[in-house]
């Protein structure tokens, strides 16, 4: 357009040059303005696209779906049903049972995954030999670099009824059981949730210890020393000097791990199944079962189940943060 216009209008040369240079000046000015204002956003754009596409949009989509009778495999379009899915889920005893199972697992897992690493960190922190301390740290982080599914596979084999080394040890070495009455670790018995909790503690042990070690490193050395000179016992030093300074790290760990423990799903899919009577049938499996397994995939109902579970978790997480904050 610009070129054609310039060719048709034949004003004086000076006019053309002047107007051209002005407009170009303005154009560059505007362009630079846009570029400078938007330039940070060019850098942010890839992250924002992924974040919106696969994290923000799904939340709102799921929220909307939870108010409809959406069935994935059904041909008929989704109808708005208001709170019907939520009412149905909250009236279903399985919803409460499955939430309780997740809470039960969290109770089994959370204390061990905080206290053991804390103990270990306090001990490793006192190792004065630099090379030994490095070796300990490297070994501690090995489980943290094993991908999740491979941890589950490893422990699935460890807990195997016949071939697993745990039962072989109990039967062959200790002679506590015979092949007939050996404990059935996985597969929906009362032992399943504790067994999974032990696995999770093993997995997080090293990583959490490193976390606490970083916190311990930030405590000035002369603080415990001064307390020791004043005649405080090691326990008193730990409780009154070290523990309060680790509280922020502890809060992050408790809240984050509460979140992971309540929303465990991969482990239950691998170790359990879709049997409603087993302890691994928690709200996450209930949701997955409805969304991708049963009937015509009632994803509207499943979304309501998932959001109820997520909301319950959020409430407890906020409470936890409040409790920790108020103690400071």
């Amino acid at each position: 357009m610009g070129i054609r216009d310039a060719g048709r209008e034949k004003g004086s040369m000076a006019e053309v040059i002047a107007s051209d240079s002005i407009s170009r000046y303005q154009r560059i000015g505007l362009f630079t303005q846009i570029r400078q204002g938007l330039s940070p956003w060019w850098f942010l754009l890839p992250a924002v696209i992924f974040f919106i596409g696969y994290q923000a949009y799904p939340i709102f989509r799921v929220l909307w779906v939870s108010f409809t009778d959406y069935q994935y495999l059904s041909q008929s379009p989704a109808q708005w049903v208001g709170f019907a899915n939520y009412v149905e889920a909250l009236n279903d005893p399985l919803m409460w049972k499955s939430l309780w199972r997740a809470a039960l697992f969290t109770l089994m897992f959370l204390p061990g995954t905080i206290i053991l690493p804390l103990l270990l960190a306090v001990l490793v922190d006192r190792v004065s030999n630099a090379r030994l301390a490095t070796i300990y740290r490297v070994v501690l982080l090995i489980p943290a670099v094993i991908p999740s599914t491979l941890v589950f596979v490893l422990w699935k084999w460890m807990y195997n009824y016949q071939a697993g080394p745990i039962n072989r040890f109990l039967i062959d070495t200790l002679g506590l059981f015979t092949i007939q009455d050996a404990p059935q670790w996985l597969g929906g018995t009362a032992l399943t949730l504790p067994a999974i909790a032990v696995m999770e503690v093993w997995w997080g042990l090293g990583y959490h210890t490193i976390f606490f070690l970083a916190g311990l490193a930030s405590i000035p050395r002369d603080l415990p020393e001064a307390a020791r000179i004043d005649g405080a016992s090691e326990w008193q030093i730990f409780w009154h000097v070290i523990r309060p300074r680790l509280a922020p790290i502890m809060m992050i760990l408790v809240v984050l791990r509460f979140g992971t423990a309540m929303a465990v799903i991969d482990e239950y899919l691998i170790f359990g199944g879709f049997n409603r009577e087993t302890p691994t049938y928690t709200w996450t499996i209930f949701m997955y079962d409805q969304a991708f397994h049963l009937g015509l995939w009632r994803q509207g109902f499943a979304a309501a189940i998932g959001l109820i579970g997520a909301a319950a978790m959020m409430v407890v997480m906020v409470l936890l943060i409040r409790v920790f904050r108020s103690r400071d």
């Binding site: 696969y54 799921v62 309540m262 949701m287 969304a291």
Partner: peptide, 18 residues
């Protein structure tokens, strides 16, 4: 906030759709 939001499990429904 997204680090603390427990949405990984729930959003699988719409990620499948996407």
């Amino acid at each position: 906030v997204s680090l603390y939001l427990p949405i990984r499990v729930v959003s699988i429904i719409s990620i499948y759709e996407i």
